[in-house]
Design a binder for these strands. Structure first.
Lengths: 347, 347
DNA sequence: GTTGGCGCTCTATGCCGATGAGTGCTAATC
DNA sequence: GATTAGCACTCATCGGCATAGAGCGCCAAC
């Protein structure tokens, strides 16, 4: 999309702002009254007609005002929003977020949960976050606990503070003391690896070790193997907050559309796909309306940012709202929240 | 409510059945056409007027048919439904449930989750379950894991298969070997107690032990104490499934009402209160419409049954639907599901 | 290039009357 | 005394119609 002339941009900008605010088609007269323009409605109409030809605006029906198309919003986000420098998030709001998240330092899941709760209190949209994939976080501890003769529970602690428990069965009984020795041994062996890495290491070791039946290594490997057989190769987890917020917006007064959207919220896979989309390594992404792959969410936009530690991306946090969303407010908010989370994770 | 004569009961029954099916007010003509009655519309009208005086029926407006009031549904559930013997749940359905839940034996949370998922696939309502309160389940294992010099994670395994992790800080560093010895010692000490009981025991011991600083007992008690300080005295947990089902019913086409209901679903406390209501130790409870304390749910009915082990109640499982609910189908379903869960837990 | 003016389109609103379902009451019937 | 047929009445719903208002496109004039 090549650039528009200044007048065109100003008018497009005004239409977007107006529509974001009112949720109603914007007419030429309304814009003309807006002091900033010294133009008559007729002139504005001409411009609007051109913008419509370019695919940036559309009319719900003849004789209604114009509303921005997805493409119009895209132009606004890419070209116009930056003209007006985005307001830094007020310090009080930043502190608000930092405090909420900071209260749960050490437990990443709680921290992120708190984070999206704050977000959906701050804005009338839905907030969403994908948790770090357990298998890809670094393992801090493995420990085996004997439940009874046949059952053992493995407890995996990642350095992100999350914990996974794996219950598995064994043929021969182990004493807890033995299990403790195994745990210690294993912990040394896997130090600093991701769970993924541990798995690989165990399976290679098993190959190498085929004939040695009695030493510690062999027993540990056997046990770990049993555990990995049980361990759910968990999908990413998603948390959503503030679903009800979205009902306040007139675009979802339509019952069918609302049902579709809520259906999408309930389907974890849809949400995962949404957050994984367009993973171009960009820090902040904005997906507008039908740009997103998921049909149920064609009337929504998503603003999301990656978070992580030491440059390693771990997940995304974002806000979902109607296409008619306050981008200029949401974008700094999401960016800032991701920053705060990054900072909290480094410490 | 004293008993009605047979004719009155038959007409009330017919109105309930009709209304449950159609969601429309039922008129005298409709009933009269129903072959079972040999009565003219006029006669039926007289009966209906009497039932209205008794508060069992009401009219949305003059010249509309009648719909049962909450009181009418209550009479139906208490007196009429049992006349027609409730159909036993078909074997195939029972197997269906048993298979779904049985796949997760040993992990109660998963089992219950699966249970409510099956329920809300079977009926067009919302299913809900309260998880056993962790503090009240018997403890099977405690284990301390050293994370670093200052942090220890305690891992609590209940015999219900659920696990709680408690992260806490200590001033002095412990070696993992010491922690293992503590764990073993503590496990012997608390065998068979609930977490609640362990807590009491630790705190009494602490009193008794005030001056002994060096022995194992004293160290274990200190450590446990630190843990309990951190351990969230968790509220009961609730799981809900099939929220979208409820949108299919015309009573929730009203936007405001729907929003209220979804709000209630999101508020854990409301749901807990709902499930705890009328805890008269009855095996199966039916709460109809405004009988329930929570205003947001005045248009809903709840059918729920307790589940537990060895006679000990642990939680409830139930179905939430519009007041106009298929009680005669839901009640056996909920009862049977609770039975299946009970059986699976005993083994 | 800009503007005022005119005719046109389309939606929203409110009113009207017809329709139909269902009631309550009364008088006749079993 | 219970039951019923009949009738007048009420009320919600729906389609038709006219009106008002917002907004556009186009054209001619500035």
């Amino acid at each position: 999309m090549e650039n528009l002339s200044e007048r065109y941009e100003r008018i497009l900008n005004a239409i977007v702002l107006n529509y974001v605010h009112s949720a109603e088609p914007v007419g030429s007269r309304t814009l003309s009254r807006n002091a900033a323009f010294q133009l008559s409605p007729a002139t504005i109409r001409n411009v609007m007609a051109d913008l419509e030809d370019l695919g940036l605006l559309c009319q719900p029906h003849t004789s209604a005002g114009r509303i921005p198309t997805d493409k119009g919003f895209r132009y606004y986000v890419d070209h116009l929003m930056e003209l007006q420098e985005l307001p830094e998030l007020p310090q009080t709001v930043q502190e608000n977020i930092r405090k909420a998240c900071g209260a749960h330092r050490g437990n990443m899941e709680e921290m992120l949960k708190e984070g999206i709760m704050v977000l959906s209190r701050l804005v009338p949209y839905v907030s969403v976050v994908s948790l770090p994939h357990f298998n890809q976080t670094r393992l801090k501890h493995i420990r085996f606990v004997r439940l009874n003769d046949h059952q053992i529970m493995a407890i995996l602690v990642s350095d992100a503070g999350s914990v996974q428990n794996v219950l598995f069965e064994v043929d021969t009984a182990f004493a807890q003391d033995d299990l403790n020795r195994f745990s210690n041994f294993l912990n040394q062996m896997v130090d600093g690896l991701t769970l993924e890495g541990v798995k690989r290491k165990i399976f290679t070791q098993m190959e190498a070790d085929k004939n040695a039946y009695d030493n510690m290594m062999s027993q540990v490997v056997q046990l770990s193997r049993k555990m990995f057989d049980q361990q759910a190769d968990d999908d990413s987890e998603i948390m959503i907050n503030g679903k009800l917020n979205i009902l306040e917006h007139p675009e979802f007064a339509d019952f069918e559309r609302m049902k579709q959207l809520f259906h999408a919220f309930e389907e974890k896979n849809i949400m995962i796909k949404l957050l994984d989309e367009a993973q171009k390594g960009e820090q902040l992404q904005v997906i507008i309306g039908s740009e997103n792959q998921c049909e149920e969410m064609n009337f929504c936009s998503v603003v999301m940012a990656g978070y992580g530690r030491e440059g390693q991306p771990m997940g995304k946090i974002g806000i979902i709202g109607p296409t008619r969303m306050e981008y200029s407010r949401i974008i700094p908010l999401v960016r800032c929240t991701a920053d705060i989370i990054n900072q909290l994770m480094e410490t």
